[in-house]
Design a binder for these strands. Sequence first.
DNA 1: CTGAAAGCGCTTACAG
DNA 2: CTGAAAGCGCTTACAG
Lengths: 338, 338
Amino acid sequence: MNTRSLNGSNVTLADVAKAAGVSKMTISRYLHNHPNVTDRTVRRVKAALAKTGYRPNHAARMLMGQPSMVLGLIVPNLANPFFSSIAHSVQQMASAHGYLVWIAATNHEIDSDLRLIERMREHHVDGILLISSPTTSLKGMDLAGLPLVALDRPVRGAAVDFVTTEDRLGARDAVTHLLGHGYERIACLGLDRQLHTIHERIVGYEEAMREHHLSPLRYVCCEDKVTAVRVLRKLLSAKRPVQALFTLNSTTTIAMLEALDEMHCSVPNDVAFFSFGDFPLADVYRPRISTVRQPTEELGEQATKLLIDLITSQRSSFGKQISVPASLIIRQSCGCTR
Amino acid sequence: MNTRSLNGSNVTLADVAKAAGVSKMTISRYLHNHPNVTDRTVRRVKAALAKTGYRPNHAARMLMGQPSMVLGLIVPNLANPFFSSIAHSVQQMASAHGYLVWIAATNHEIDSDLRLIERMREHHVDGILLISSPTTSLKGMDLAGLPLVALDRPVRGAAVDFVTTEDRLGARDAVTHLLGHGYERIACLGLDRQLHTIHERIVGYEEAMREHHLSPLRYVCCEDKVTAVRVLRKLLSAKRPVQALFTLNSTTTIAMLEALDEMHCSVPNDVAFFSFGDFPLADVYRPRISTVRQPTEELGEQATKLLIDLITSQRSSFGKQISVPASLIIRQSCGCTR
DNA sequence: CTGAAAGCGCTTACAG
DNA sequence: CTGAAAGCGCTTACAG
């Protein structure tokens, strides 16, 4: 069996040309909407195309340097709703511009994004949207001729345009809101602070605290329920127990909600709660959770637009940053009452 | 500017061959781990490869009919956690076998999956995993030489192998559990019953009811909060109010939880609740929600394995079905107490 | 173990 | 408006 038939039809331009009684060039011109084709010829070509069941072979087209109309999107992990929503909005926007999106996940494997970039490139994607892992660096990589836009976080080792959330401001606003309730001991909990977004949110938290002449509490990393319970116990049994919890991402938020549940803590009476990142049940949970809503839709859209612009204009990335604001959704867990 | 340079290096085999002082064939053999290359030659080739920064041009390889080592995955919507978890597990499994996954979403556009299949094919994917839209039919499509596996639901119009959840059994078990609590009026709520999975779950519900000599209530479609509130009001104000709610999918589950909240219904006292589809907060929600856990991981894995098997064995799909069991996670919303 | 030739299916010049 | 020739960067099949 011939693997070549994977393309599905072994019908080539030559076959169509023969069926139509014209040259390959004429078929090719028709396929590319070239003006110079007679109506009469068009009819014959159309018929021949239909009869033969022709399907273009992209490999040959790309060998000739034509654009593939495919965009690559590299995300850390598709099981994470934040990334999958971004993937969704990127698709929408790309599709509106005639592009297909090739999505791939790195799944926390070292340098997996570098390998994905290489392979996507070999497969002739027209450009790449990258949500990079914190450890990857593009340093030394030959990026010539590869339109690239970083999403959510900048990428190390190269001056690449990037679009991100206003993480710092969002966090700062949330903490300022908590401070407005009179809480003074506010704990900040999240993931590895190496992550650019997490780092920015921590800075936002610290800025808000300092602005109110309070010292920020020590940052705590907490990714699962077990850790969350231990951390929470410690925070609440301190001499001066913590009054509010500010979680920096959804994983930590869920872990903390589990811990609060397990310890029979009443929110916001025992501790107030604010989450960076909104989620579907936040509005039904008891109490309703106040959150910082991330502009996932807009993030994906802006980045895609920027990438397409880079591709069509032949300009190159130079490290420009686009920040999309986050907004507060005030519900009850922070201490507000309706 | 030359678009051809998109590949990134205009270094070709010929350049490497010249640098190494050998023929193109020798380089090609080395690249494919062909045994017939002397150690001495290997060293020279390696050096030349490194010096020139060669990057293979997949377009040329594919033109020669080589496999692309890329699998296509078509899903309805990446913003849906169920599909994105499947995407995640497909990636994991594919990656373990050396395949890359090209994920694309149809986003409920008519025949979008057909177009995606076409385009992925033009781009020489080695096979496709398809979570088809209920309206799509493959009838009349030329699928020759295209390994294809349907996921989650069968695909209409062609005999394609598919792997799915044991939806009917899962639903039946859940309803049987509710019946065990003594509820007799159990409502079944979900999405469009055209969806194969939804249809199966409804059948499972009906089977369980009939087995207990009860007539199934009329199936209700309910996708958002507004509808949910209206439906719930009606169900609870009936002469013989409903005693338990069985939601068939996560969207309906969330909508119903919102409605229950808005109407100040106490679960399970006013109505019991059971959800098809588990979710992160189900275990912390008040009350904790009893659910049917879908085997997303296994679904993705099985389907990927099956597809790779089809590709490597050159066999073709014939409509075989693989069903993966779902399991009950009993918590409190059904009426159980710890 | 290594290489020269031919060809994959298109498109880009260039003619007419 | 249409076509014949050459070539994209590889690999296959055949020599040596």
